[in-house]
Design a binder for these strands. Structure first.
Lengths: 229, 229
DNA sequence: GACAAATGTTACGCTGTCGTGACGTGCTTC
DNA sequence: GAAGCACGTCACGACAGCGTAACATTTGTC
């Protein structure tokens, strides 16, 4: 979970290998396919954190893959970067309209692509860029699986960790119990809504420090949020 | 093995001598050639730890050397730094596309080049940038295949050595069993995940010293990490 | 203030994960 | 070929963490 998962959809084998190699070197977990239909399968199987999508591929066309990724619930919010050989303005517009997050024209340098991917991931999910997230006096390091508050290490279980991480990635935002179940437990989970309460309680207890206010906020009949104290 | 091996491919004799002299002064083991074909031979003969490659050379062109180094299995992952007189963006892009790791435009100061080489080596293989890696009270000498803790030599098997080395190259970071299998056993290995546990256990047992805390950390349902004490 | 709804808190059984010792095998060394 | 070593696998016990229900408390409404 610590390495960002990329799905590369590219039918130029040489380019695909190059990109894959460079991104692996940067610590990414890369899966590659040259086929649009297979891309959708792979994405459904193991939701990637970002999709690099060539515009011109066999199987399903790029624009169609893009559209169908957006339509599927699991991949609806996964950022997509379009790769295309044509700097055609029409394509650009259509790509962004279909819901792509960025657009890179060939030829590009791997370094540039790495930078763009980093930028998009930082924007969408700060924790994936390999940085520690900080909200108020809380600090969470995703790669080290570690939480600190005011310099003190916090002992925390796996579920509470994921829960806190989700809150810290969207500070201040209120999530309903259902949304939290989807985000933290996974969308297919069959868990009682009230179970969330218990983990919220455990999380609050774990991060409680005498003399520090509880950054947790309960919004009655709406859900929970993390307050940036 | 203790000195990092550089392969310098440069046809400007004066510059080559200068660079070679300075890098030898820094403790590097440098071999020089002005010919692309010979460079490939030398690289195949004794895999260097890093290649400094002039863009404009006789024999095979720089880009071709770069490509063929990547294609050969032994040198596929050897970092390459391109040296070029032209700051031309096209060259830069092509160089990076071909898989170069960095790019230095002439004229450069030897000091700058030394810094860049150091940076690339540190990133790719930390153990090569210095003689020993140190984390907390643990010291690992990759060249001598030796591990010390608080001055005491630690007896350790080959697998445990690679395991520890991997942890020490990424201190604090949590690795899943699968990631450790990939990194330590090789990505093609067909080994049980639980086998990792046993080697973790053996490693812990080996580096245990009465009165010293175990720097190993188990992150339940996530993996293992080395505590950066 | 009375009532209901929503949330906080606690206890408990269950499950999966982990630590550990033991065993068999292949390889090297002498 | 005997002995030692490193390795991979398995089995078993321990226990942390999980989900749930049941009870307690708070909040909002009339």
């Amino acid at each position: 979970m610590s390495a960002p998962k990329l799905l590369l959809v590219e039918d130029d084998t040489a380019l695909a290998e190059l990109v894959e190699y460079r991104f692996r070197g940067e610590g990414y977990d890369v899966r590659t396919t040259d086929d649009g239909d297979e891309a959708l399968l792979l994405a459904a199987e193991d939701t990637p954190d970002l999709v690099l999508l060539d515009w011109m591929i066999g199987g399903t066309s790029g624009i169609e893959v893009c559209r169908r990724l957006r339509r599927s619930k699991a991949t609806a919010h996964v950022p997509i970067i379009i790769l295309t050989a044509r700097s055609d303005e029409d394509d650009r517009v259509r790509g962004l309209e279909t819901g792509a997050d960025d657009y890179v024209t060939k030829p590009f340098s791997p370094r540039e692509l790495i930078a763009r991917v980093g930028a998009v991931l930082r924007r969408v999910r700060p924790a994936l860029a390999g940085e520690t997230i900080t909200v108020g006096d809380l600090a969470l390091d995703p790669t080290a699986h570690r939480v600190m508050r005011r310099g003190q290490p916090i002992k925390i279980g796996p579920t509470e960790f994921r829960l806190l991480r989700h809150f810290m990635e969207h500070p201040g935002r209120v999530f309903s119990r259902g949304q939290l179940l989807d985000a933290v437990w996974g969308s297919g989970s069959d868990i009682e809504l009230r179970t969330v309460d218990v983990h919220i309680r455990r999380l609050r207890q774990a991060i409680a420090i005498p003399g520090a206010a509880d950054p947790g906020r309960t919004v009655r009949s709406a859900g929970y949020a993390l307050e940036a104290v």
